[in-house]
Amino acid sequence: MDIFVDSAGPFLGALATTIVMAITAGIGSLVVGTLIAAARISPIPVLRGAAFVYVQFFVNVPLLALLILAVFALPDAGIIMPLAPTTVVVLALYEAAYVAEAIRSGVNTVSNGQIEASRALGFTLGQTLRLVVLPQSFRAAVQPIGNVMIALTMNTALAAAVGVVELTAAANKLNLVQAQPILIFTAAGVIYMLLALVIGLSAGRIERKVAIVR
């Protein structure tokens, strides 16, 4: 335990970086994912097509490849950002594709009768989505979105590959000094497990509170 006591400061700082990255990227993925989901169910073919291409691209390209591309290719294009914000943006855009699919699955729980009723009341497409479809879709997709947030938190570990000092990178640095891989990486794994458990339990609690009684 002396290993962690002596390195508590850097280790906790790296854990804070992981949590901040997960929260920030999670919020970004929810915003972008909602817009993509709305575009995918839009009656406008161009929007549907663009959203479909977006989802297929990010679902089928490895996250690590995207991170490396963003970190090393964007500066050559004149776009220079710090490592952590770059990683957060890539994570948000990547996970937004999965959030969009989760929300779109929730759309299937909204009956056609409600959509027709909103049209009969004179709602525009935007009002129908904002007031009728998306709120119910979110309520039905709480657990799937929670699963996406867990995956996002785990995926922050890939930031170590591009130089961001988060939990995995800190554990690796500590291991290089202390040469105790089993102890150090088990501790890091337990921390990731606890983060996932918090997210999963929170999603379950929210799901029970907003459940649609039919």
Rank of each mutant, 00 (worst) to 15 (best):
G78L: 01
G78N: 01
G78A: 00
G78M: 00
I79A: 12
I79L: 15
I79N: 12
I80M: 03
I80F: 03
I80D: 11
I80H: 09
M81F: 10
P82H: 11
P82Y: 06
P82M: 05
P82E: 11
P82N: 13
L83C: 00
L83M: 00
A84K: 07
A84Y: 02
A84H: 02
A84P: 04
A84T: 12
A84W: 06
P85A: 04
P85C: 01
P85R: 02
P85T: 00
T86D: 05
T86P: 05
T86V: 06
T86W: 02
T86K: 03
T87G: 15
T87R: 05
T87L: 15
T87I: 14
V88G: 04
V88Y: 04
V89M: 12
V89I: 15
V89H: 09
V89K: 02
V90A: 03
V90R: 02
V90C: 05
L91V: 02
L91H: 00
L91R: 02
A92Y: 12
A92I: 13
A92V: 14
A92L: 14
A92Q: 12
Y94P: 07
Y94K: 09
Y94T: 12
E95I: 01
E95F: 15
E95D: 13
A96S: 14
A96H: 05
A96P: 03
A96G: 06
A97D: 11
A97C: 08
A97H: 08
A97Y: 12
A97S: 15
A97M: 11
Y98K: 07
Y98G: 06
Y98Q: 07
V99M: 12
V99I: 15
V99W: 05
A100T: 14
A100E: 10
A100Q: 09
E101L: 10
E101W: 02
E101I: 01
E101H: 01
A102G: 09
A102F: 06
A102S: 15
A102Y: 01
I103V: 14
I103S: 02
I103D: 05
I103R: 05
R104C: 06
R104T: 12
R104W: 09
R104K: 14
S105K: 10
S105V: 05
S105H: 07
G106M: 12
G106E: 08
G106Y: 05
G106A: 13
V107F: 14
V107T: 13
V107R: 13
V107G: 08
N108W: 09
N108Q: 15
N108I: 08
T109C: 02
T109P: 00
T109F: 04
T109N: 06
T109Y: 03
T109E: 00
T109S: 14
V110A: 10
V110Q: 07
V110G: 06
V110N: 10
V110S: 08
V110E: 08
V110F: 04
S111C: 09
S111N: 14
S111R: 14
S111W: 09
N112F: 03
N112C: 00
N112P: 00
N112L: 08
G113Q: 03
Q114V: 01
Q114F: 04
Q114E: 11
Q114D: 05
Q114L: 13
Q114I: 06
Q114M: 11
Q114N: 04
I115D: 02
I115P: 05
I115T: 14
